[in-house]
Design a binder for these strands. Structure first.
Length: 552
RNA sequence: GCGCCAGUAGCUCAGCUGGAUAGAGCAACGGACUUCUAAUCCGUAGGCCGGGGGUUCGAAUCCCUCCUGGCGCGCCA
């Protein structure tokens, strides 16, 4: 509407020979960062400066003069800075917007942007050979929140956990289990050098001895390892599932890597790639010729010289399977240490005939663990790490999730659990939750006085004129866009910033305006305002896996 | 050596598809609770946006280069 007005102004100015230009530029209307610069602004005059051979401010003045103010809800147009044109809208424009938001009720914030396209988000996918650590926690927070935002934005989303229950690390796992099991029975067997040293494994085997005694002791080694592994995997997976659940993460699908080997899917995909000429044979191994799909990627082993397929081969079969399940887009959340794998995976998808861009990877920088100011090398092998369980116990699920979601995946994080515990009461999450609790408290008090509102209550919104009220409405109106923006950019941290801003505006409103004990018309309008506000806060927090308490 | 990510206030970080005076929280300092929750609000102070060059009317943002830190680089996953 504003852009149209600018176009009209430009055309008229041209007709009157005030301006000379060949083609209209793309008129971009934006919301200025500073409120005093109006509700909307455009830099059209600056963009045109060269073509029209005029000073941007002069052009801006001409546009302002010709702008059809009378026919719109524009209150005033002014020129500022180097040539910005700022539009101030009448207050009623905002209250009209708010009235629309109210009619959307619980639906406000949901959009149909994604058109129901199927998207899969795969995250955490930790090896089931140990406990979940800080890196997994970050992946969980980022992946789950992104999935939540995509859902709000109108995508059909599935969350998936890929279980690495095959390959080398499972062998090491088996050997570690066996050693711990026999040790628990008092045998003096050496622990494998490259085994998993985590205490959880020791405990697991000790408890197995308690439960089932020495029934595996005399068995033949490979059978024993197989049984111990399947027992341990079952327990480990259910532990992982329950820890993630207490971190507010629920998956739609747990996908087993082993199942791809069992079903022959890996073999089939390798054969297919070979038939289609993508493979090289060198030093007894089969290599995928990555140079064929652009860039200067080096060949990568798919099948080792001993005939065993690599993780890469299984991963290709896995992603082929994903696309065959009908996902338009597949998003993986990986640690930055896997970045070398990204181009290769996308390339492999291209080799299989898929558009490589349908596989997206969010790389998150690693979490470095500190303790008392010293870097602690995180390693599952040596068993030194802070577990997700400890984190939840020490700082709480809400604070932990907010902590991770609020930072962009690109930022490297140093994490000191001791520090996190002492600072957990400073966590911004409480600022947001407190806003929600305060609103609930007002609503309860209002109900006590017999005041309540719903979508159908007749309310005169024009009495919402206080600056803090208008700011709140403006911010609320942004919500659906913010969700879509964060979802599309795959940057869930934006929503944390948004809800923090929103809470800040509420606290400001709270200190300036009373909801109860004022004129009834105003009281009802404000009740409606905070009702919508509470809903938006709750919805945003829910997407982040953070609860919105009624009381604090 | 090559590649990816980062470097912004004392600390933790936003801002980066170019835009107006670079923001927030914590920490510091000064104010505000007989009224809907002070886990709050208001104010003060704090910045060669890692360095240098370039493009542009305009650069924290784009390009080049250097420095620093993290991660990765063919039979691990």
């Amino acid at each position: 509407m504003l852009a149209q007005g600018v176009r009209i102004a430009l055309e008229k100015a041209k007709d009157d020979d005030k301006l000379d230009f060949d083609a209209l530029p793309d008129i971009v209307i934006e919301v200025p960062r500073e409120e005093k610069y109006g509700d909307f602004a455009t830099n059209a005059a600056m963009q045109m400066a060269r073509a029209a051979r005029k000073n941007p401010r002069e052009i801006a003045q001409i546009i302002a003069d010709y702008f059809p103010t009378h026919s719109t809800s524009v209150d005033s147009v002014e020129i500022a800075g180097p040539g910005f044109i700022n539009f101030h809208l009448k207050d009623t424009w905002l209250t009209e917007i708010f009235a629309k938001i109210v009619t959307e009720g619980e639906q406000f914030g949901n959009s149909s942007f994604g058109e129901g396209k199927k998207v899969q988000v795969e995250f955490v996918s930790a090896n089931p050979t140990g406990e979940l650590h800080m890196g997994n926690a970050r992946g969980a927070a980022i992946g789950d929140t992104l999935a939540g935002l995509l859902q709000l934005a109108g995508y059909q989303v599935e969350r998936e956990f890929y279980i690495n229950d095959a390959g080398n690390q499972i062998e090491k796992f088996a050997n570690s289990l066996e050693a711990r099991y026999l040790q628990a029975l008092g045998e003096d067997v050496p622990f494998p050098e490259d085994g998993y040293h985590g205490e959880d494994i020791t405990k697991l085997m000790a408890s197995l001895v308690e439960k089932e005694g020495d029934k595996y002791q005399k068995m033949e080694g490979s059978l024993r390892r197989e049984l111990l592994t399947s027992y341990a995997l079952k327990i480990k997976l259910s532990d992982i599932r329950s820890v993630l659940s207490s971190f507010a993460v629920e998956y739609d699908c747990w996908f087993s890597e082993q199942s791809l080997h069992d079903s022959g899917a890996v073999e089939i995909i390798v054969k297919r790639l070979q038939e289609e000429g993508w493979l090289l044979e060198k030093e007894g191994a089969l290599w995928l010729d990555c140079s064929r799909f652009g860039s200067d990627e080096k060949p990568e082993v798919l099948v080792r010289s001993n005939g065993v397929p690599t993780y890469y081969a299984a991963d290709i079969a896995y992603h082929d399977n994903k696309f065959k399940r009908g996902f338009d887009t597949v998003i993986n959340v990986w640690g930055a240490d896997h970045h070398g794998h990204v181009a290769r995976m996308q390339g492999a998808m291209e080799a299989l005939g898929y558009d490589r861009n349908r596989l997206e990877v969010i790389l998150m920088q690693l979490v470095r663990l500190y303790r008392g100011g010293e870097i602690v090398k995180m390693s599952k092998r040596t068993g030194t790490y802070v577990t997700l369980n400890e984190l939840i116990e020490e700082v709480g699920k809400d604070a932990a999730r907010f902590f991770f979601v609020a930072r962009s995946a690109d930022s490297q994080m140093d994490f000191d659990l001791d520090l996190a515990v002492t600072q957990s009461s400073d966590n911004p999450v409480y600022y947001v939750q407190y806003a929600h609790a305060r609103i609930c408290s007002i609503l309860a008090a209002a109900a006590g006085e017999g005041l309540s509102v719903d979508e159908n209550t007749k309310i005169n919104y024009d009495c919402l004129t206080h600056e803090s009220e208008l700011q709140l409405i403006r911010k609320l109106a942004d919500f659906p866009d913010e969700v879509v923006k964060a979802a599309v950019a795959r940057e869930p941290h934006h929503i944390a910033a948004y809800v923090l801003d929103l809470a800040g505006l509420f606290h400001n409103f709270y200190s300036h305006c009373r909801v109860l004990g004022v004129d009834k018309e105003l009281s009802l309008a404000r009740l409606q305002l905070i009702t919508v506000l509470a809903r938006v806060i709750k919805k945003a927090l829910a997407a982040m896996g953070v609860s919105a308490p009624q009381k604090m």
